[in-house]
Nucleic acid binder design. Structure first.
Lengths: 239, 239
DNA sequence: CCGCTGTTGCGCACACCGTACGCACACTCG
DNA sequence: CGAGTGTGCGTACGGTGTGCGCAACAGCGG
């Protein structure tokens, strides 16, 4: 142990570390965790690294957050807070719900790490941002003459669809970004193997050999197709 | 270090460890991992513990599996293999797809840990069981007169809905089982806090204070409602 | 002004993790 | 009887989450 690293040996050597505000706050921790997750992904989030980014020791964070799981719940709520819910001024309920679903997809894909976390945080709907989101989405459905009880189920249906697609897409985008290649390069490179692997399955084989589309656009179109079908189905319940 | 644990000091002391079959195989490893996950959940799966269950050292597994992520991909494919796809004999395509979706939900909830993993395994659809599943589901839609291209999108839509609900439900069931209480106890205990927390949100508040249903049945009904709407929406695309 | 009390940050330590590396063995083939 | 090959395992490294107890201060009553 080097001698100069010994604990404070004299008064003027000792660092003065008193700040006006408490250096750490739950909000700062959550914000920094979000930045870290966005830039380096889920497996890069450790309490030590997060502490270091905040000029704090790892275990200091535990004064503001019970444990890592709780931190993740807070971050997830923060992400849900970014979803935009339009108002119904001059829009049909369908247009508004569509815009909201597209915003949700965009937010979830922008923070693709969230797919690995959604399956772990139960009780997500207790977060303040999630509650605000759900309340506002309920108004959209009720503006479309759904009964309160049915609006609730309609909301759950749309969100389940969005989460399902986002989970699948996010997993794909994550492995993609780990590979370093672009999406188009990846699918092009994989195509021969895919065509070979689907040989025993005629229908999959036909799809694999069909005219390839531009990859990213194709994902968006697929999402929109399913969303329209879901909304078609909900519409049949209206008078 | 106790003296009797020293390495083989003479010929007849040394254990003879040759088996007829290789002790480990990829199939055995995957099967045991599945058992471990089902009985103790995702955070209990470690290569060391899995090795111990197979009477093997932790690192021996790496002869058969590239790394833990690859192991998880194999296990996920195994789970997908448990989903039952009925044939269309004497059933409408809707009935068959409904049965398949219900089976998928049941399988995913039976292995609730899968929700924490689905967002990490990209390229899930390359597994043999997933391919078989998708091929068979395509036949259901094509039996219902969907075009091949549209059957593909319809399949993706239904699966996205199933995965979305299963992710949410599985997260709930996991936190539930960690708490030790029964589902009904949990919701009953949470009700007052929920009613309080929803005070600022009139629509959520109304739903929270409404006549409570039996919890598990309510989840199943909600799933069925959304599934019916999705299928309604798909049906509008048929002549 | 002094001392007390409660809050905050931090260093240390523990148990555990995934896995790279290289050795020891038993079997197969020449 | 070698040589080669595949398989299991022991050791080790650099991480992880987090419990625990101490040190430094803020705000306070006296």
């Amino acid at each position: 142990m080097p001698v100069e690293e010994q604990p404070a040996m004299s008064v003027w050597t000792r660092p003065q570390r008193r700040r006006d505000q408490p250096a750490l706050s739950r909000a700062q921790i959550v914000a920094e965790a979000l930045r870290l997750l966005d830039s380096e992904g889920i497996e890069a989030l450790s309490m030590r690294k997060l502490g270091a980014r905040l000029d704090a020791g790892a275990t200091s964070l535990y004064r503001h957050v019970a444990n890592k799981d709780e931190l993740l719940e807070l971050v997830v709520d923060e992400v849900y807070g970014q979803i935009e819910v339009p108002d119904t001024w001059g829009r049909t309920w369908r247009q508004a719900v569509t815009a909201c679903a597209e915003s949700a997809r965009a937010v979830l894909l922008r923070h693709a790490w969230i797919a690995s976390v959604l399956g772990q945080v139960g009780l997500a709907y207790l977060g303040p941002n999630v509650m605000r989101l759900n309340e506002r989405m309920l108004t959209l459905f009720e503006a479309g003459k759904f009964s309160p009880a049915e609006a609730d189920r309609a909301l759950a249906t749309v969100m389940a669809y969005v989460i399902g697609t986002a989970t699948t897409e996010a997993a794909w985008l994550t492995t993609l970004s780990r590979s370093g290649r672009s999406e188009q390069e990846w699918v092009d490179g994989l195509r021969p193997a895919l065509i070979e692997a689907t040989k025993p399955y005629p229908r999959l084989h036909a799809l694999a050999t069909a005219e390839p589309e531009e990859a990213e656009r194709s994902r968006g179109d697929g999402f929109r197709y399913g969303l329209d079908r879901v909304l078609d189905g909900l519409q049949t319940r209206l008078p």
